[in-house]
Each structure stands twice: as structure tokens, then as C-alpha cells.
């Protein structure tokens, strides 16, 4: 009748029945669907995509078309959101601004992701001086104030790119942005923002790889003869994808915001290109007299930035369950 008596109770075990295993992605999607703010964010993102693609067909006017007889008009039947100081239709310009914002978001995010993933992975896999250099570069980039640095770089870039273009034109008679200077602006913003914003993703990817490498099951698999590629595709990618998706979503919103900021400061998109930031800056001097010219693009920008932040936040809760806020 005497058997082992465990003084530290067995009773609690009965309270912790493991729930049935379900896929992380399935869970994540359900979790996301329950998050109303994230749904709002996703809606905003899709709307932005739609407007960016179809904006020119939706727009009632041409974005650069001036009508000096009808400047600074309040919203009316002809001009839904009124006209700006050059008589351009504000609604049209906001639609085109979406195109700018989305394109910049897309290329900057692609650029920082490629650069960040490449540098981070190189650091983690090659180690040694490569890793050292990458990490110090990240430290140094982080030390600079990013918008100011991006602004400074973009001013320099613009000059250099212009010079290069003139050179190409004179030498070979070739130009890539004669018709539309906006592509030049894209290039400048893309370059400066990528240079300032790559390090977050590099650190993330490096950290993920290093922490995975420590895991015992990886060593075990390696010992069993699993190839590097099998480990990368089987563990690394699925494990890093969640955090990377979150960073990319938040980064996308961040890149659009940075474009608006640079344009607001006057070093981003140049006239007559349409950018929400530049529209705010253009009309800021007249906020007392024509408040709608400042408020409209501002509200649109705020909603878009907010949408991406809500989406990123929801994705974070859904994809990184270990840090999910209960």
C-alpha cells in the first residue's frame, strides 16, 4: 500500500490539457480576422493599391493641369476637394499622390529587404570580419538621425544623378527621365531611404539565423546529414517569415511616411509631381485662409500611415504568438 508520494503535487497537471495542435498560419489568420483595427488596416492597404494602379483612370482631371481662373476653391461639384493655388484639382492630386506613396513604399521596401536580408544573412553565415563590418555599419547608420541624413543624402544624390543624366545625354543622347522628372525623384528617394533604413531588417535576419543555429534540433538534423538548404528552407525561412512580414508591413508604412516627410521638407518629390507631403508643404503658408488644402492631404496621409500601423500591429499579435498580448 505504500507507494511513492510526490510532495510537489501532481494535481496541477490536470489543469493543463494541451490544446490540439493547429497550424500557426491558420491560427494567425483567424486571430487577424478577429482584430477589427487590422482589418481596417488591410482595407486601407488594398484601397491604396487600387488607387495607385487605377488612379489615372479614376481621376477627373490631369494632375498637372492648371486653371489659373479657379485657384484655391473650396470643395464643389466640379472639384470635389477644391483646387490648389495653381488651380489644380486637389482630388486628382491626392489620387496621384497615392501612386507616388505606394511606388516609393514598394521600391524602398524591396530595396531595404533585399539589402537587409543579404547583409544580415551574410553576417550570420560568414561570421568573422564580414559580420563585424555589417554590425558596425548598422551601428553607425543608427547613430545618424535618419530623416535628416536621408534629406542630406537626397540633396547630394539629386545633384549627382542630374549630372550623370546630363553626361549621358551629351555623350550618348540617352535619357531616362526627360519626359517625367518624377522618376528621378523616385530614384533619389529610393537611394537615400534605402541607405538609411536597411539596418533593421539586417539585424532581424541575423538574429533569427543566429538564434536558430543555437537550437539543438538543428544540430541534430545537421548531424543526421541534412543539407544546409534543407535547414534553410525547412526551418529558417518558416521561422523568420513571421517577424519579417511584420517588419515589412510596418516598414512599408514607414517608407511612405518618409517619402512624405522628405517631400514636406522640399527634398523629395519636386513639382509638378504629386506627393501628399509636398502638398502639405505647398499649402502650409495659407493654412489660415485655405485650411482644406492642408487638411485634406494630411488626413489621407494620416489614415494610410495609421492603416499600415494597425495592420502591422495586428500581424505582430497574430504571427508572433509568444509575445502576443494576452
Amino acid at each position: 500500500m505504500i507507494s511513492e508520494f510526490e510532495p510537489e503535487g501532481d494535481a496541477p497537471h490536470q489543469f493543463f490539457v494541451m490544446p490540439a495542435q493547429r497550424s500557426l498560419w491558420q491560427d494567425a489568420i483567424e486571430q487577424l480576422a478577429r482584430n477589427r483595427l487590422a482589418i481596417f488596416g488591410a482595407f486601407v492597404a488594398f484601397l491604396l493599391l487600387f488607387v495607385a494602379v487605377f488612379g489615372p483612370w479614376l481621376a477627373p482631371y490631369d494632375y498637372a493641369e492648371q486653371n489659373l481662373l479657379r485657384i484655391n476653391e473650396p470643395p464643389s461639384g466640379d472639384h470635389w476637394l477644391g483646387t490648389d493655388g495653381l488651380g489644380r484639382d486637389l482630388f486628382t492630386r491626392i489620387l496621384y499622390g497615392a501612386r507616388t506613396a505606394f511606388l516609393v513604399g514598394l521600391i524602398v521596401t524591396a530595396g531595404t529587404t533585399i539589402l537587409g536580408v543579404a547583409l544580415g544573412a551574410a553576417g550570420a553565415f560568414l561570421g568573422g570580419w564580414v559580420d563585424f563590418t555589417v554590425m558596425r555599419l548598422a551601428d553607425i547608420t543608427m547613430a545618424f538621425p535618419d530623416i535628416l541624413l536621408a534629406a542630406f543624402i537626397s540633396v547630394i544624390f539629386r545633384e549627382k544623378v542630374l549630372e550623370a543624366q546630363i553626361f549621358l545625354l551629351e555623350r550618348y543622347g540617352w535619357t531616362f527621365s526627360e519626359a517625367n522628372r518624377v522618376y528621378l525623384d523616385y530614384l533619389v528617394i529610393f537611394g537615400s531611404l534605402t541607405l538609411v533604413q536597411w539596418y533593421g531588417k539586417a539585424r532581424l535576419v541575423r538574429g533569427q539565423i543566429l538564434s536558430l543555429r543555437e537550437k539543438e534540433f538543428i544540430e541534430a538534423e545537421r548531424a543526421l546529414g541534412a543539407s544546409n538548404w534543407a535547414i534553410i528552407s525547412g526551418h529558417l525561412i518558416p521561422n523568420s517569415l513571421g517577424p519579417l512580414i511584420v517588419t515589412i508591413t510596418v516598414g512599408f508604412g514607414g517608407a511612405m511616411l518618409s517619402e512624405a516627410s522628405l517631400s514636406f521638407l522640399g527634398v523629395g518629390i519636386q513639382p509638378p509631381g504629386a506627393s501628399w507631403g509636398a502638398m502639405i508643404n505647398d499649402n502650409l503658408g495659407q493654412w489660415r485662409y485655405y485650411p482644406h488644402l492642408v487638411v485634406m492631404p494630411g488626413i489621407v496621409l494620416a489614415i494610410v500611415v495609421l492603416g499600415f500601423n494597425f495592420l502591422g500591429d495586428g500581424l505582430n499579435d497574430a504571427l508572433n504568438p509568444e509575445q502576443r498580448r494576452r
Binding site: L257, A260, S261, F264, G277, I280, N281, L284, W287, P291, V294, V295, G298, I299, L301, A302, V305, L306, N309, F310, D313
Partner: peptide
């Protein structure tokens, strides 16, 4: 707080001024 921190100063600034 997400809202307060997401809206850039050059959007909320003019709005508060108005």
C-alpha cells in the same frame, strides 16, 4: 497611443492650428 504616434507632426500640427 498608436493614433497619436502615427500621425505625423506636419499633419496634426496644421490641424491643431486650424
Amino acid at each position: 497611443s498608436i493614433i497619436a504616434s502615427s500621425i505625423p507632426a506636419y499633419v496634426i500640427g496644421p490641424i491643431l492650428l486650424i
